[in-house]
Amino acid sequence: DHIPWITAVLPTVIICVMVFCLILWKW
């Protein structure tokens, strides 16, 4: 059976995008 890697990667991607947007917003 396949491991849904997207389910494991998606939260990390969302957190990175939120942090990236927060850094851009504070500049």
Rank of each mutant, 00 (worst) to 15 (best):
D1W: 03
D1H: 03
D1Y: 06
D1L: 05
D1T: 11
D1C: 08
D1N: 01
D1E: 05
D1K: 07
D1P: 11
H2E: 09
H2N: 08
H2D: 05
H2K: 13
H2V: 11
H2P: 08
H2F: 05
H2G: 13
H2Y: 10
H2S: 03
H2A: 02
I3D: 15
I3K: 12
I3L: 04
I3R: 07
I3G: 12
I3N: 02
I3M: 10
I3V: 04
I3T: 04
I3E: 09
I3H: 11
I3Y: 13
I3S: 02
P4H: 05
P4D: 15
P4T: 02
P4L: 00
P4G: 07
P4Q: 09
P4I: 00
P4F: 05
P4N: 06
P4V: 02
P4M: 15
P4A: 10
W5C: 08
W5S: 07
W5K: 14
W5I: 09
W5P: 03
W5A: 06
W5M: 14
I6G: 04
I6C: 07
I6M: 11
I6S: 12
I6D: 11
I6E: 15
I6L: 05
T7Q: 06
T7V: 03
T7D: 03
T7R: 07
T7P: 09
T7G: 04
T7A: 09
T7L: 07
T7K: 05
T7S: 11
A8Q: 12
A8D: 03
A8P: 02
A8L: 03
V9E: 06
V9K: 14
V9S: 03
V9F: 01
V9N: 08
V9D: 11
V9R: 11
V9M: 08
V9L: 05
V9Q: 13
V9P: 02
V9T: 00
V9G: 04
L10C: 04
L10F: 06
L10M: 11
L10P: 09
L10T: 13
L10G: 05
L10Y: 04
L10R: 03
P11H: 03
P11N: 08
P11A: 00
P11L: 00
P11R: 07
P11S: 00
P11Y: 00
T12Q: 12
T12F: 14
T12S: 07
T12K: 11
T12D: 15
T12L: 01
T12N: 13
T12I: 00
T12A: 06
T12M: 13
V13A: 09
V13T: 04
V13G: 03
V13R: 03
V13H: 01
V13L: 07
V13P: 04
V13Q: 15
I14M: 06
I14E: 08
I14Q: 13
I14P: 01
I14N: 06
I14A: 01
I14R: 09
I14F: 10
I15G: 05
I15F: 02
I15L: 03
I15M: 10
I15S: 00
I15C: 01
I15Y: 00
I15E: 01
C16M: 15
C16S: 05
C16A: 04
C16T: 09
C16G: 07
C16K: 09
C16E: 15
C16R: 11
C16V: 10
C16F: 03
V17L: 05
V17C: 14
V17F: 11
V17S: 06
V17E: 09
V17Q: 14
M18E: 14
M18D: 01
M18H: 07
M18C: 02
M18Y: 14
M18F: 12
M18P: 08
M18Q: 14
M18W: 11
V19C: 15
V19W: 11
V19S: 11
V19T: 12
V19D: 03
V19N: 13
V19Q: 14
F20D: 15
F20T: 13
F20Q: 02
F20E: 14
F20K: 12
F20V: 10
F20I: 10
F20R: 02
F20Y: 01
C21S: 10
C21N: 15
C21H: 14
C21L: 02
C21M: 05
C21G: 14
C21A: 06
C21Y: 12
C21W: 00
L22I: 05
L22S: 13
L22K: 10
L22T: 11
L22A: 04
L22P: 12
I23N: 13
I23F: 03
I23Q: 12
I23C: 14
I23W: 15
I23D: 13
I23A: 09
I23H: 10
L24E: 15
L24F: 03
L24N: 13
L24H: 08
L24K: 11
L24D: 14
L24I: 06
L24G: 12
W25R: 08
W25E: 13
W25V: 11
W25D: 08
W25Y: 06
W25A: 15
W25H: 04
W25M: 05
W25L: 05
W25P: 02
W25I: 07
W25Q: 15
W25N: 02
W25G: 12
K26C: 07
K26H: 06
K26L: 04
K26A: 02
K26F: 06
K26E: 06
K26P: 09
K26Y: 01
K26T: 06
W27E: 15
W27F: 13
W27N: 12
W27G: 12
W27I: 09
W27A: 10
W27Y: 14
W27R: 08
W27C: 03
W27T: 03
W27D: 15
W27V: 13
W27Q: 08
W27P: 02
